[in-house]
Design a protein around this nucleic acid. Structure first.
Lengths: 206, 206
DNA sequence: GTCTATACCGGGATAGAC
DNA sequence: GTCTATCCCGGTATAGAC
């Protein structure tokens, strides 16, 4: 919430850095509108209204609906990846529980879940640079998990799964449980993901 | 491709039962167009064109875009549920592999995957009878799997998961792996789902 | 039931003042 | 950079002939 510089210089706009504020307001509004309506049914006019800016400002900043959507999911996935890698960079034994907690909070965020599905659909439907970028991010997260698993269990003591496969299974399980929970919350108790991970990933009970 | 009755009676339309044919053609076209474009970006005009019928016919049969989409996913999920329950009704030891094979074939069907995601979004965004119906179908499938697991492993010999929880995990894992595979096919080898199921569900190696 | 033609409007995008 | 006003196309939906 706090702006970078509160140095309210006498000249200029009433609020410091109105431009960045507008950009942020538009992205925030786009996030909820694209999530709730879906890309096709979302309208730039509604996004502008919810952001409290004129429709012309949206076009001045982002160029168009498609580009706005691209900017949104680009920023969203960049944030998610950064958070994930920050979690993964810590010690192996505490990184996974941290990751579980962080992902669990995303699981209960309706907007995040909807937007994630919309993002996946974009990646599957299109074959542009952004779509490839999304697949790369996914790969990077699984690689991070795999490295963590390798550190946790040094050598290949079991032959059922490679580290990469285990990471894939854990990632798939996570997304699948989110999907399930939004559809039928009562079927997915809070600790089910952690307990399921124990079976696969050998996470400390914590 | 073969029509139900080839009894080309002299009177009537050139082809037997033109009405049912049209309805089916429209539903088939709607399936691919809604999947590839998404609900909001799909147009009734394109659906009619791909079905080879006039746009007026679509409205005569289904009433509108929303109702057409509802009819499509209603039929699709009904078919899926029927197939699943047919698989589950067989013997326990052979039902799960059968289910795995059937689901695996759905996993590699691009249109099915896209439509499933679009259906999930519909269910989460809306709170109408159709959305509740979708949640019911999901519950019914998990119940079926749970019953199967209970038959396979008679009593509660392990206390880590209830049968319902185990069914939830397997279902989540399945959908998560499909998602993953469409995004990065090379990360999900053919037999990964079966091998992961062995860890959770105690499926015979087959 | 199926078609063609059309009414109607929402919404993406732009122009130009401030 | 932000606004208002406007263009205009595409798309839903309907009317009416056959």
């Amino acid at each position: 919430m706090t702006d970078g510089d509160d140095t309210t210089r006498p000249r200029g706009g009433r609020r410091a850095e109105g431009k960045a504020r507008t950009r942020e307001a538009v992205l925030s509004a786009a996030r909820s509108v694209f999530a709730e309506r879906g890309y096709g049914s979302a309208s730039v006019e509604e996004i502008a209204r919810e952001a409290g800016v004129a429709i012309g400002s949206v076009y001045a900043h982002f160029g168009g609906k498609q580009a706005l959507f691209a900017a949104l999911i680009d920023r969203t996935t960049a944030d998610g990846l950064a958070r994930a890698e920050r979690s993964l960079s810590g010690g192996a034994t505490e990184a996974l529980p941290h990751l579980v907690a962080q992902l669990g909070e995303q699981a209960d965020d309706r907007i995040s879940s909807l937007l994630e599905a919309e993002t996946w659909l974009y990646a599957i439907r299109n074959d542009d640079p952004l779509a490839r970028h999304l697949a790369d991010d996914d790969r990077r997260i699984r690689d991070g998990i795999a490295r963590l698993l390798a550190a946790e269990r040094p050598s290949s003591e079991n032959d059922r799964f490679t580290d990469a496969e285990q990471a894939t299974v854990l990632n798939a399980l996570f997304h699948g449980l989110i999907r399930q929970r939004r559809l039928c919350p009562e079927a997915v108790p809070d600790d089910l993901f952690r307990r399921a991970m124990e079976v696969f990933g050998r996470v400390p009970d914590a």
